[in-house]
Design a protein around this nucleic acid. Structure first.
Lengths: 367, 367
DNA sequence: CTCCTATATGAATCGCGGT
DNA sequence: TACCGCGATTCATATAGGA
């Protein structure tokens, strides 16, 4: 399945064993489109934490106080986020997920390293574990942070696809999804859950549809039982997993071998209009769809006349369909395609209809 | 209204002018039961933003929200949180509210100073401002952090009161409340909003019912137009406000003088309404109830294929389940939920059945 | 009075590609 | 790298005004 060859080949669609920082540092830089990371934050982590002098922290050491914990966790966070940033392409992005125990440290360190926060997203669990003792609120959500590698990066966001997922309404930053249970929850040989924090595939589905395209490379440095890889494979994305625990790797390998990719056309997603081919307004005049001298009209009854070169003459104003529209409305900008209308058979029609006709023709006879 | 007397008297139910750090340092230590703090968010807005109708968005561009660097913001955060911790009683607690711009730095510093995080709470806005350019997810929530002064503190939590606020079900960490608009939103003499970020009283109502008792002292170091004070007064708690800007203090004084206990009724409204949950078709795909690539069938045998974003591909037509259904029937509209069917175990079943399953799951554990 | 429509607005890190 | 022109982009409410 690996695509590239040679020394810097990306080990696509495999699970790499070992410590994620070392493994990431062994990957070629600027090679990955998206990172999804669900880092550990509980006491199991103590085994991999180090003090500033690189002496290993002993979990039962008397000096292990709260400050040590935070400092060590911050160092761990700094190191893996730095390694992650190196392997990200310039226009790449990252998702991290956590709870109130660790998410604030993750978010602050992302900002410190120059990642640019795009959204924080709340995964609102529809069936959380209740708080049995009644001493706090039911902890019914986890937080994800979506960040680009740096400010100004051209990150991937499939706006229309997410809008479609939400029945035509803009997707919000709070996502209601059930936790991972039932058949989806992987069991070990004893019938116990194979991993304590297995994420639901629905969550990864939304993340990957939103912020990757088919063929993108998705890296998960805390692969666990491989939810990221499974959903990436289904959706026609390549993945790289890193996992230090052999038992998790085994479960994940088995899981991935059973996953199948969806049909190619099922992976197509509602496209953004920005991706449509550009049609100069003048082309409508050249093609005779509009005559020079013809009068266009705005929704509020303002008029302008079409010239042979595809410009408009309005009231004391000449320019493009957009410029004249903006000037007449006193607006900073204007989409002339939807603003201007023409008359055919007594009906008033937006000129965008003509553009759609041209685009349809172009699709039939591509140049 | 002041209770105590002498040099260390607490200035109860008053608004203190000045910088909150200096003022807090002038208050007696260990004297306050709860702090609610809505500090500057450090938004880093560049240009202007217009709605699609070309109207300009009134941005938060006030001087008090400007910080040059993260380091400067962190210094400010460290200083006021330290001053706040000094005035808190040993069993006191704090709430802070913020967005992704600042909440991670707030949370990390709370942990660094020895505050003990109890919950993070998500305020899910029922009517947030959309993302007008379609470049990100709608920023539809803000985050609150609830923390005790230190680990092991006997903090106040009125479990039963919150349970009854939530119709007998344990209160969760995500709260759906509308933003502050209409009559509740305070206006200046020009009729413009008096403060750019006024919080809804319903939010403070829930916070104070949950984590204070009548007679408790509530301190708000970023008092603004005094929502904390107003709700505290309604609920029979004492408050101390600190506010630098004279104009905000004036508005708050006027507001507080008018507050009456019966205003409490208005606060109860938002919790009770629970609409039929909307289930987007895309969610069935995300949840794996339908696979991308799966074929749906109409009663008259027309077919369409499911895509990963919850749209359908029909004959020369792509769109929502409703749009494709309407197009295939040549009808102006179509209820896709009853029109489209899928096959399971040789039987043909309407997709509405899947929606009912999702709704049933949601109804088991509402909110 | 009701009903309907039009308008206003909210803590926002809100283009992109060609020259 | 900076400028410039095309052209894409919104949801839930509250209020006001007209029928």
């Amino acid at each position: 399945m690996t695509k590239a060859k040679g020394a810097n080949a990306l080990p696509l669609n495999t699970i790499l064993p070992g410590d994620c920082i070392e493994v990431m540092n062994g990957l070629p830089e600027a090679s990955v489109d998206l990172i999804f990371a669900d880092p550990p934050y509980n006491l199991q982590l103590k085994g991999e934490l180090h003090r500033p002098d690189n002496s290993k922290v002993d979990a039962v050491d008397d000096d292990w106080d709260q400050f040590d914990t935070f400092a060590a966790y911050d160092r761990f966070t700094r190191d893996w986020l730095k390694a992650a940033r190196r392997v990200l392409k310039p226009n790449g992005a990252i998702w991290v997920i956590g709870s109130y125990h660790n998410i604030f440290r993750l978010g602050a360190e992302l900002q410190n390293q120059g990642y640019w926060l795009l959204n924080d997203v709340v995964w609102r669990k529809s069936n959380p574990m209740p708080n049995f003792r009644g001493k706090r609120l039911t902890n019914a959500h986890e937080t994800l942070i979506w960040a680009s590698r740096s400010e100004g990066a051209k990150y991937t966001f499939n706006y229309e696809a997410l809008k479609s997922l939400n029945e035509g309404v803009q997707m919000r930053s709070d996502w209601v999804l059930p936790i991972c249970t039932g058949h989806e929850r992987l069991k070990d040989e004893n019938g116990d859950k194979a991993h304590p924090t297995q994420k639901p595939e629905s969550l990864l589905h939304r993340v990957l549809v939103a912020t990757t395209n088919p063929g993108d490379v998705v890296l998960d440095p805390f692969f666990g039982t491989g939810t990221t890889g499974a959903v990436a494979k289904m959706l026609g994305r390549d993945f790289i997993g890193i996992e230090r625990e052999e038992s998790y790797r085994k479960v994940a390998e088995k899981r991935l071998s059973r996953v199948r990719k969806y049909d190619r056309d099922a992976l197509m997603v509602s496209a953004s209009k920005r991706a449509e081919p550009r049609v100069p307004f003048g082309q409508l005049v050249e093609r005779g769809m509009l005559r020079p001298g013809e009068v266009l009209v705005s929704p509020r009854g303002k008029t302008a006349k079409v010239r042979a070169d595809g410009t408009l003459v309005g009231d004391a104003m000449t320019g493009s369909i957009h410029q004249v529209g903006a000037a007449l409305e006193g607006a900073p900008s204007c989409n002339g395609w939807t603003y201007w209308h023409f008359k055919r058979d007594g009906k008033t029609v937006p000129i965008d209809l003509l553009r759609q006709q041209v685009r349809a023709e172009m699709a039939e006879r591509p140049n």
